[in-house]
């Protein structure tokens, strides 16, 4: 299992953002759904090794992120797109992705080829030499995705990756996710149930720090057949599970 989580919690002061999560995931695309404040981003940040858990067990790629040497190995094999991407506006697209490739310990001889591949995968070839300050929000999101995939990660964590993408780009992006899911574990945190339906093999629904549903998108659809509200079968499943968890 690339992700092995048991009874994981995370507190911020009095607020319990993640309240005892159990989760296992191997290769494939794993969707993380839930309302605002459900704990999706906190769970993803722990998996990205940027914040430690308050308690519980977290093992990533068979390693313990609490140990500094193992954490380094995890980070070399990790791709992470945070909810809000930070960037230096004076960098070009290529410079930005190259910087992350080097930070992720890629051999310098392989960097330029890997950067070019990542840029092509997010369809930014014609903007490769453009400064980041000149790009639109959707393009910046794609640059963020490119830095996350440049090292061919074994564990790819994406927080709201399709925010700002137009429908055509979202379709292309889902293909990219499915492609990565064949050889890596991809975790996608999103509000958009259609992304989950189109790209994910497994989905977890979080509410108030806990996982209240774990199964396939089809199983989530079935949950909404009798009493869910929404415009699509998945939305109905989503709302039915949430209503059941809160009742």
């Amino acid at each position: 299992m690339n992700i092995d989580v048991a009874d994981l919690t995370r507190r911020f002061g009095r607020n319990q953002a993640v309240a005892g999560v159990d989760l296992e995931a191997g290769a494939g695309v794993f969707g993380l759904l839930g309302p605002n404040g459900a704990g999706k981003t906190s769970l993803l940040r722990m998996m990205a090794t940027v914040i430690p858990p308050t308690s519980g067990r977290l093992r990533l790629l068979g390693r313990d992120p609490g140990a500094s040497d193992e954490r380094r190995e995890i980070r070399r094999r990790l791709g992470y797109l945070p909810q809000n991407l930070g960037y230096y506006p004076g960098f070009t697209v290529v410079e930005f992705i190259e910087y992350f490739a080097l930070l992720k310990d890629m051999p310098p001889a392989r960097v330029s080829r890997a950067v070019a591949t990542a840029v092509e995968r997010v369809d930014l070839g014609d903007k490769a030499r453009a400064k980041l300050r000149t790009l639109s929000g959707g393009m910046l999101r794609r640059v963020g995705i490119a830095q996350a995939i440049v090292n061919e990660p074994e564990l790819l964590l994406l927080d709201e990756p399709t925010a700002g993408l137009d429908p055509e780009q979202r379709v292309t992006f889902r293909e990219l996710l499915r492609d990565f899911g064949e050889r890596a574990t991809v975790v996608v945190s999103t509000h958009l149930v259609e992304d989950v339906g189109a790209a994910c093999s497994e989905v977890a629904l979080m509410d108030r720090g806990k996982i209240v549903f774990l199964g396939t998108p089809e199983e989530l659809r079935v949950q909404g057949e009798s009493n869910g509200v929404g415009d699509s079968p998945l939305e109905r499943g989503y709302s039915a599970v949430l209503a059941g968890a809160r009742s």
């Binding site: 940040r45 990205a48 090794t49 940027v50 380094r72 980070r75 070399r76 990790l78 992470y80 797109l81 945070p82 809000n84 991407l85 930070g86 960037y87 230096y88 992350f100 930070l103 992720k104 310990d105 963020g144 830095q147 996350a148």
Partner: peptide, 9 residues
Amino acid sequence: FGESERATG
């Protein structure tokens, strides 16, 4: 760069 940089090697 924030968190994306902190999650590197």
